[in-house]
């Protein structure tokens, strides 16, 4: 019995015009065209999308969760990047 599997694809769906594509899940398909068709059937049976992206899962490069502390530390330590860091006089209104 052949056990050669179809490649794994990640599916991204734009739910409506004006919003970005969002990861919906994954599926198996022989090629890109079949991946789009299968994604239509598996992830958009109730008008969840108007546009689909698929990409072979092994083409995605991801950051390592073990590196998360070091990777994201600079954004945690620089509180002056947020508007609430600054003192402005009362009465200035919305700024």
């Amino acid at each position: 019995m052949s056990n050669k599997e179809w490649p794994l694809w990640e599916v991204f769906i734009r739910s409506k015009q004006g919003l970005s594509h969002k990861h919906a899940g994954s599926l198996r398909a022989a090629d890109a065209e079949m991946a789009i068709n299968n994604a239509r059937d598996v992830y958009t049976r109730r008008s969840e999308g108007i546009s689909i992206w698929v990409i072979e899962s092994n083409k995605i490069v991801a950051s390592d969760p073990d590196d998360a502390d070091a990777l994201f530390e600079p954004s945690n330590s620089k509180v002056y990047r947020h508007p609430t860091f600054y003192t402005v006089p009362d009465g200035v209104g919305h700024m």
């Binding site: 019995m1 052949s2 050669k4 179809w6 022989a30 090629d31 079949m34």
Partner: peptide, 18 residues
């Protein structure tokens, strides 16, 4: 078991087209 040939054919077709 009866679907294996379909899955193999789809893969062969995808490889040929690529």
């Amino acid at each position: 078991e009866e679907g294996i040939w379909v899955r193999e054919a789809a893969l062969a077709y995808a490889e040929k087209r690529a």
